[in-house]
Amino acid sequence: MRVPVLTYHSNNVAGNDYADNDHVALAADLRLIARRGLRIVPLATVVDVLLGEAPASEVARAVALSFDDGSWFDWHDIDHPTCGPQRGFAGILRDFAADTGAAVHATSFVIVSPQARATLDRTCLAGRGWWDDAWWRPAQQEGLVAIESHSWDHNHHTLPVTAQHAQRTGTFRTIDTRADADAQIRQAADWLDRRLAPHRTTLFAFPYGESNDYLLREYLPRHAGEHRVRAAFGTDPAPVELTASRWNLPRYVCGSHWRSPAELERLIATR
């Protein structure tokens, strides 16, 4: 088992070239994956194999895709205020499937708090209501993009108040108490489960890719019956192998770990 998990942020639109637009990059990367003869499998399947609940053949010669933050850009086509029309991530996946006949799937790790997203829409996007959750249930029902948790409020530095008790924001390493972890992880899972029933949230991606010993050694493994997380993902640049820790699985991030098709091809060349 050696599965690269490729991660994209649909909010990353600073131009219309590969290196500064994750939509352009995703469309190009899907074609590269197909040329390499690799399959795209759901992230949940990777976790099933890791936990011994599915055979390794399920992820042979495969990659998995994940998106972070859960804005409209994951789902809708958008007329960007400075860069013009952008095909949403879901549309890019559908285009690829229609052109190639290949199976395709991605997991969107979403910021859950409606209040946090409303503020982030103003502080990090264009303030046009592009961060609501109306698309999450249709996405889950279609089966193209799975919805999973990226925490309650990302402990984001632009929020006036976050769930972190001391307001040490801009990092997830300060989520180091049971109360803070419950507020960020369990509360998010509870809200998503109510919103998306009968779907149950089981995967988590650390905001900023950051964790700490309390989360990795205490909270996630010892309170799994309460938060219901089966596996958590960070951003260490490596493929998922059977020896990986289920509480801090690696992912490659577009724009950080590769910035061109050639760099991605080198990254997945060992598949």
Rank of each mutant, 00 (worst) to 15 (best):
S151E: 07
A269E: 09
S66E: 05
F206Y: 14
F89P: 01
L267K: 03
D48P: 08
W247G: 04
D153W: 01
D22K: 04
R246A: 04
Q164D: 12
V229Y: 14
S57W: 01
L267N: 01
L196S: 05
V110A: 06
H157R: 13
Q140F: 02
A90D: 06
R31N: 11
A183W: 03
T169Q: 14
R61Q: 13
I40H: 14
W152F: 11
L43V: 03
L196V: 02
C254H: 15
A134L: 15
P160M: 09
A134Q: 08
H76S: 14
T123Q: 05
L43M: 10
R87I: 14
R195I: 08
N11P: 10
W135L: 06
H157Q: 15
L6G: 12
P42C: 12
D213K: 05
T123N: 02
W136I: 03
A126E: 11
L192H: 03
A64K: 10
D20C: 07
A34Q: 15
R61N: 13
A28E: 14
G70D: 00
L264E: 00
G91P: 13
R230P: 00
A181R: 05
S113Q: 14
V49Y: 00
L43C: 10
D193P: 15
A106M: 05
H157N: 11
W247D: 01
V253S: 09
V110H: 10
H150D: 10
T171K: 03
H105V: 02
F172N: 00
E58D: 06
R178F: 12
V161Y: 13
L65K: 09
H165A: 12
G15M: 11
H165W: 05
R61L: 08
T82A: 11
A179V: 06
R35E: 12
R35W: 11
R137W: 04
R137L: 15
F204Y: 15
Q184C: 03
D68H: 00
C83M: 08
A14N: 09
L93I: 09
I185T: 11
A188G: 01
D77I: 06
L216D: 08
N21F: 05
I185N: 11
V59Y: 01
S113Y: 03
V145N: 05
H154D: 02
L242H: 12
A231L: 06
